[in-house]
């Protein structure tokens, strides 16, 4: 699709359509040149990354994954553990984006290899600012693997 204007591919793993919409809006609001792809749970995200089935046969490899923790079928923790065990997927940074404030979740996420743990701000403006700072770090400051 519009790969020329999108410098980054971001895979958002999120089961709530309203939350996914908000991330999309925040990326656009902050002029982040990212092609946002959405998977509704860990299992679909793994299918996406492994390009399983006709729907994901041409799925572009993401430069960054934004991961909700609490989802049906396969939750964020299981998904994170799974991709960090796959040699050809483990280099993709995974940032947790969740409503969970439980300290156990924070520690477990970093233990599994998360590249940040963001508690979703409820306030929309704060949410926009959070995505801006996330974008400044991942898409402006750091170098990502397989960057175009």
């Amino acid at each position: 699709m519009s790969t020329e204007q999108h410098r980054f591919v971001v895979l958002l793993v999120e089961d709530e359509p309203a939350d996914a919409h908000l991330v999309k809006a925040a990326i656009s609001e902050n002029h982040i040149l990212a092609d946002l792809r959405i998977a509704v749970d860990g299992r679909e995200a793994l299918e996406y990354l492994r390009r399983q089935g006709p729907r994901f046969a041409d799925a572009p490899r993401p430069n960054l994954i934004l991961l909700d923790l609490n989802m049906p079928r396969m939750d964020g923790r299981e998904f994170l553990a799974a991709i960090k065990q796959e040699p050809y997927l483990r280099d993709i940074p995974v940032v947790i984006l969740t409503t969970s404030e439980v300290e156990r979740d924070v520690l477990a996420s970093y233990h599994l290899g998360a590249a940040g743990y963001i508690t979703k701000p409820v306030d929309v403006l704060q949410f926009m600012a959070a995505i801006r700072d996330l974008g400044d770090y991942w898409f402006d400051l750091v170098r990502l693997p397989h960057q175009k």
Partner: peptide, 18 residues
């Protein structure tokens, strides 16, 4: 500027393990 972006992310935005 680089350290500012790094600090905004790791010291302000994200939660680190206690």
């Amino acid at each position: 500027k680089a350290i500012d972006k790094l600090g905004q992310y790791w010291f302000e935005l994200v939660r680190l393990p206690e």
